[in-house]
Write a protein that binds this DNA or RNA. Structure first.
Lengths: 329, 329
DNA sequence: GGCTGTTATGTTTACGTAAACATCTGATGG
DNA sequence: CCATCAGATGTTTACGTAAACATAACAGCC
């Protein structure tokens, strides 16, 4: 900066002013400074800036792996929104989703060049961790509950699930089976609970719940079991990957979709329209979730809003060809 | 830091020594300092550290979206490897893959708190951009060519493709059709070229090339066309998503896989084993690519190696149930 | 016992920037 | 024609850390 100042024949403070787009600089001076910057290839040093300003203009994202579509899509939206606001995004992968690992990530966080954190993680993992957080770091949690302790942004899991179940009931199915995600997952639990509620309110029996682990493979295993239940004509899978495995199992067992069994998924991943048959599913607006997460941390950083609470992003039913009325009995 | 020093009754320099695990500190003193840190909730300020040390311990990753499995898996591996080496990863998403956008990302890079950059991007987008790079920033390019200008880590596209084609020829198919990725993609071009080479070397005719854009939807469209070619008994799709669309199109047109037509993919995404039928495909070791990228930038930063060059990560053929001998004529 | 060398700790300084304050220039108005 | 003021620019300083250098304490040796 001093070199630039010397070359432009001004003080370093003026260089700083130009570099930050400050107003009180003559057009003439500005031009000279910019020319000097160009000639010397000057780049502001972000470490010094961060030190001086007390902020890094960076948001950290803590997440357990990038294996699930939802996390990735949300992350992508966060990165885009953050870039739009002039913030960078730093990734903090947690290898194994245990409390210890999460605690580790959080304590590293203290030393990390980050102004705020977005956590895409089941919140029960956060329970014992909060205390070790540096107090100035703002947090928004995606995909979780605990709106009382944190600012939470989430897809409307319940609404989406109930829409899915209602869609199948409206087609004439007597009841709907559920292929749930893993117990540890809050999203999975919410979807299962909403499925149960919707059936109960409609006065329908609740079949035993079948569990998977989000993977297509687990959907296949569960599907082999479901195919044996002859009275099962409709299945609500808690995500599209498991629905894919389910479709394969049903096909192998000679149960036609949607003629014999209707299948509905959740997420609306890019490939869902290319399944055999194209999958009816609940569309999640991950981009909106990501955007709201960024908005949330920024608002907290500007102290506009210190109140916690949960924001729900609505879902949308996408009807393709994997659902149909039940076969005549 | 001064507060900690005061409380522990030492100088701030000693606090710094403890904080950095320096050796020449009495066990007694160290304990006191650690206790003081704990009591005051001291966290080292990473901006000041970066300013002093002249490095950020952060690697930037420039990528065009997180839509493709390959990018995501590579990114994940990069993040994990980097964390393992004590480095953080900052994401620099490029919204639209034009040279201007990429140039923008690179110039922002100069101001970004980043010691090195890994570019997961078609390199032809980099052509006009290099000059604007701050000279001290180290670069590794994944998924590209240009080993002469950069250090490149890539999957062995050619080897994988030739294995795929040979597998189909070995099964007895007279020739193999190719469903290619978009022209702009270097990986797509390499795969197409290897397909052509392998056929030529085997003395087989080269059917016209069919193009998609990596998406399942484009695979479906292309599949409808391929289904019309009655002499087509084997297709090598340049990625698994397109293979998925292709499977759907063939199914809809009454062409059985693998009895009438064999299909092979590329990538081995997690869901490939759950397609109908389970997809034979070329497995890419994204984790290894990510690891080598990190290793590459770190080596450059330690000045152990200033030479450019390309490292190829081998692939592996995963045979499932979408390939079989051709039907009797 | 004084000299040398080693180890533990303290003091000074600089990293690059921008806020706060100081100064200078020229214009306006009485 | 000078006082006043606004706008442009310069000077000083501090952000938190760690390298470089300085000092103190103490052991070993002739």
């Amino acid at each position: 900066m001093a070199d630039v100042a010397r070359l432009a024949g001004v003080s370093s403070q003026t260089v700083s002013r130009v570099s930050n787009g400050y107003e009180g600089v003559t057009e003439e001076t500005r031009r000279q400074v910019l020319a000097a910057m160009e000639e010397l290839g000057y780049r502001p040093n972000s470490a010094a800036r961060a030190l001086k300003r007390g902020e890094f203009r960076t948001i950290g994202v803590i997440t357990f792996g990038l294996a699930t579509t939802g996390n990735v899509r949300t992350l992508e939206a966060i990165a885009t929104s953050a870039a739009h606001e002039g913030y960078a995004v730093t990734l903090l992968p947690v290898a194994v989703p245990t409390q210890n690992e999460v605690r580790g990530a959080f304590s590293r966080l203290g030393e990390l060049a980050v102004d705020a954190v977005i956590v895409i993680l089941e919140v029960h993992l956060l329970d014992a961790v909060t205390l070790s957080l540096p107090p100035h770091v703002r947090i928004v949690v995606a995909d979780s509950d605990a709106g009382d302790r944190y600012t939470v942004v989430d897809t409307d899991q319940a609404g989406g699930s109930r829409t899915a179940v209602r869609h199948l009931l409206d087609l004439g199915h007597h009841t709907v089976w559920h292929l749930a995600g893993p117990e540890e997952s809050y999203a999975a639990e919410r979807r299962a609970q909403a499925w149960r509620t919707e059936l109960t309110e409609a006065g329908r029996p609740t079949p035993p719940l079948v569990r998977g682990d989000w993977s297509a493979e687990s959907g296949y295993t569960a599907g082999l079991e479901l195919a044996r239940q002859k009275e099962c004509t409709a299945v609500f899978a808690a995500n599209d990957q498991m629905a894919l495995g389910l479709l394969r199992a049903l096909h192998e067992q000679g149960r036609k979709v949607p003629d014999d069994v209707s299948v509905i998924g959740f997420d609306d991943i890019a490939e869902a329209g290319s399944f055999l048959p194209p999958l009816t599913t609940v569309h999640q607006d991950f981009a909106e979730v990501g955007r709201l997460c960024v908005e949330g941390v920024l608002r907290q950083m500007r102290h506009e809003d210190t109140e916690h609470g949960t924001t729900l992003v609505p879902t949308r039913l996408v009807v393709r060809h994997s659902t149909a009325p039940p076969p005549p009995r």
